[in-house]
Amino acid sequence: MGLLEQAAVDRDIGLWEWLSDVGTWTGSDGILTSLWDTVVLCSIVTVVATLLSVPTAALLAHARKAELSTTWLVSISRAVPTFAIAALLLPWSLERGWGFEPWPIFVALLLLALVPIYLTTYTAVRQVDPAAVNAARAIGHGERSILFKVELALASSPVLAGVRVAAIQVVATEPIRAFLGGDGLGRFVRDGFGQNNTTLVVGGVILIGGLAALTGVAFVVAERLLLPTGVTRYSRQQGEK
């Protein structure tokens, strides 16, 4: 699905009918396909961002390095207009024969996700109670062991929360992809604008919003399930300080 192929929908169909028609959902131009496109991209971006940011941030925070660069990063990070970056990369990607997707939007979304995950992880590891770290050191744990067993473990709640926030942001920003020649749920809005079809537009909006909300919920559930109680309790304590 690209710029040229559009969802062909009769513009007079009401929203409810559109959503309840099975044909809307299935097929190569159906909702499920686009949903899949969006979920795949967002997941990969989130995973890659996490894999890149968390270890880096944890290591730097543990070693108490890069405090200044981190602060600098905070200010710069806000000036990342995802849309502009994706647009900038588009010609470059096309020139290289890679097409409209996935690189421009992937890189742009990755940059968007990297910074909040890095910052939350850095702060969380940095703020881990030094008493716990010193105790572990005294017992005889090596530095790497401390990092994994103590610092990351205790910081895992805020880190996961940071990943959640980043994931939601990625999902919420991803729709611009459709306007840059790509796929994903945003295409319903794009096509709806193109055909002056309100049903498509509103439908797209609902789908996008719904996915963002679902992402949030999914993460909250995951946090609840994956994190040991002691860790969440510790984090809540830290939060109250």
Binding site: A172, P175, V189, T198, V201
Partner: peptide, 14 residues
């Protein structure tokens, strides 16, 4: 804040 911008613009346009 989490509402997707594309969605918001699209919603208010009509």
């Amino acid at each position: 804040y989490t509402l997707p911008s594309v969605a918001m613009f699209a919603l208010l346009a009509p």
